[in-house]
Design a binder for these strands. Structure first.
Lengths: 163, 163, 163, 163
DNA sequence: TTTT
DNA sequence: TTTT
C-alpha cells in the first residue's frame, strides 16, 4: 500500500569496493558508489560528458550479496527507490543526503568482475557472472523480495487457461 | 536469482471489468484488458493514434484486490513482466499469447473509478483513491511482494548512519 | 551515446504550484515538488508512512507545458534521470542538491486537476485530462523528445512484415 | 502527446545474430531475439527456470547500430514499448505477434561481445564496450530520439540556479 | 473494450 | 536461439 511510484533503474559501474556494516540486529547494510555517464553535444557541437555518482544502499540479504560479489569496477543493474534524508552533521550543520535504496540487483559482465584487485579476490573466483538478487523479506527492512515466481503449471487444474 | 531483466511499466485504462477465477488451491487469478494510446505524426503531418490492448494478469492477493477494486474505465499503474505462451487451441492449431504478469499495481484517480456500475458498487464506495498493492508472497505463486518497507529507524543504533 | 542507465519513474502529487523561470535564451525551466508516499509495517505491526519530496525540473517545451497545466495537488507521471549538484551557497558553505531532470510527463486524473486555485485558472478549464508530453528537441537542451512514433504502415512496402 | 504509459525495460542476451532489412525509403529495420531468464522455486523447493524470448525491433539509425554491433550472445539493455499486431498469414489464418519496439539500447559487456564468430568480426574489434544509442529522430519513424542532453551551463546566466 |  |  502506498501512494505514488518512486522507482529508479540504474546500470553503472562501482567507483570503489562496497562497504558493508551490520546493525545491532545483525542486518547487513552495504553501500556502493555507482557511476552513470551521459553524453550531450554542447552548443559548439562538442561532446560533453557528465557523470552522476549514485549512493546505492542494499539491506539485509541483498546487502550481504552486494558486499560479497560486487567490487570496484563491477558493472551492475540496480532497481530501487530514491530516499532523501536530512540530518545534523558533526559540525552542527544541517545536511542533506540522497540515497538509492536498492530492492533488486543483477551483476552484469564487464570490467571489474571476476577481477577484483587485491588479496580478497580469491574467494570470489567461482561467483556466477549474471545473476539477479532481490532483497530478502526476512532481513531487509525497507524493501521486500520480489523474487520467487511463476506458479507450478499443475496448480492450474482449473480450466482452459493456456499456461 | 535470474539472468536478465524483464520489466514492464504500464499506465492505462481498463476496457472492461476484470475477470477473476480461482485455482483449485483457492488462488485468485484476475485478468484485465488495459489500453495505452500513443500518438505520432504521420508523413502528412496528421496526428495518428494507436492503442495497444495489454492482457494483464494478477495472481493471489493482488488478484483479489484487482478483482475487487478495478472496473471498466479505471485508470491504473501496473508493473510486471512479459510472458509469452504457446498452446494448442480447441481447433488443434498452435496459438501464441502474450501476457503481462503484474507484480505491482496502483489505482490512479480518473474516470471509471468510484463508478462501478451495477449492484456490486456499494461496497466499493469508500475505497481509497490512490493506493499501491503488491502481490502477496503467501498466495501469489509467480510474483512476490515488494511491499512493506523502510527499516525502523531505531533499529539502526549502530553508528553515525544519518537515517 | 552514454555509459550506463540513469532512469527515474515517478507518480505523485504536486505539493505546490509549479515555478517557471526563463533563461536569457528564452528557454523555460519549470520546477515542481512532487510527493510519493510509501507505507511499511514497523516492528510493532503499525503502518508507518514516509513521504519523499522530489524536486523535478522540466526544460524547454516540456517546461512550458508543466508550468501551464500542472497545479498544486495535480497527479502526474514523470520519467527522467537523477542529477546531483554541488554548489556554494550564499553563506559560503558547500551544498548539495538532487534533482530529477524530466524528459517525459503525463498528467493523470485526480485531485488538483481542473482545480487551479487563483486567477490564472480560467484558461486551464478546457485542458485535457490525460496527455503525455515530452521535452521538445528544439528547445530542450538536456532531454530530447521521445515523442512521435510509429512508421506509416504504407512506408513498409518492402515485404511480408506484418505491421 | 499520448494517453497512458507503455514502457518495457529488458536486459538479456541475443539468441542469434541480428537481422537487418531496409525499407524502400532506405530505413533500417533490425530484429533481434532477446532472452531473459527468471528463476522460481516450485512447490517441491526445486529451482525452476523459465526463459522468455523477446522479439525486439530497432528502426532507423538505432536499427543500423544494432545491426552493426550486436551479435549472437551479446548482452544488451533495451528500452522500448510493446506493440501487438494481428495479421493474416500465408495460410489465410489470422495470427498475432508481439514486438518490443526499441527506442533506446546499450550494449553491456559480456560473452558474445568483442567475439563475433566468423569473418565479419574484424571491423567490430574497436567498438566501444558500453555505449548507449537512441533512435534518431530523423530516420526512425516510430520512436524518437531521447538523446542529446543537459543544457550548457553557461546558458544559465539567469540567476542563482545552482547548476 | 478504455481514455482524452 | 542466448546466458549462467
Amino acid at each position: 500500500m502506498a501512494r505514488g511510484i518512486n522507482k529508479v533503474i540504474l546500470v553503472g559501474n562501482l567507483g570503489n569496493d562496497p562497504e558493508t556494516k551490520y546493525t545491532q540486529g545483525g542486518m547487513a547494510i552495504t553501500r556502493i558508489s555507482l557511476a552513470t555517464t551521459s553524453v550531450r553535444k554542447d552548443k559548439d557541437g562538442n561532446q560533453q560528458e557528465r557523470t552522476e555518482w549514485h549512493r546505492v544502499v542494499f539491506f539485509g540479504k541483498l546487502g550481504e550479496i552486494a558486499g560479497e560479489y560486487l567490487r570496484k569496477g563491477s558493472s551492475v543493474y540496480v532497481e530501487g527507490s530514491i530516499r532523501y534524508d536530512k540530518y545534523t552533521g558533526q559540525d552542527g550543520v544541517e545536511k542533506y543526503s540522497t540515497d538509492i535504496i536498492a530492492d533488486e540487483m543483477q551483476m552484469l559482465g564487464g570490467r571489474g568482475e571476476g577481477g577484483g584487485g587485491g588479496g580478497g579476490g580469491g574467494e570470489r573466483a567461482a561467483r556466477p557472472q549474471r545473476q539477479e538478487y532481490s532483497s530478502s523479506s526476512s532481513s531487509a527492512p525497507r524493501r521486500q523480495a520480489p523474487a520467487p515466481q511463476q506458479a507450478p503449471v499443475d496448480d492450474f487444474a482449473d480450466d482452459d487457461i493456456p499456461f
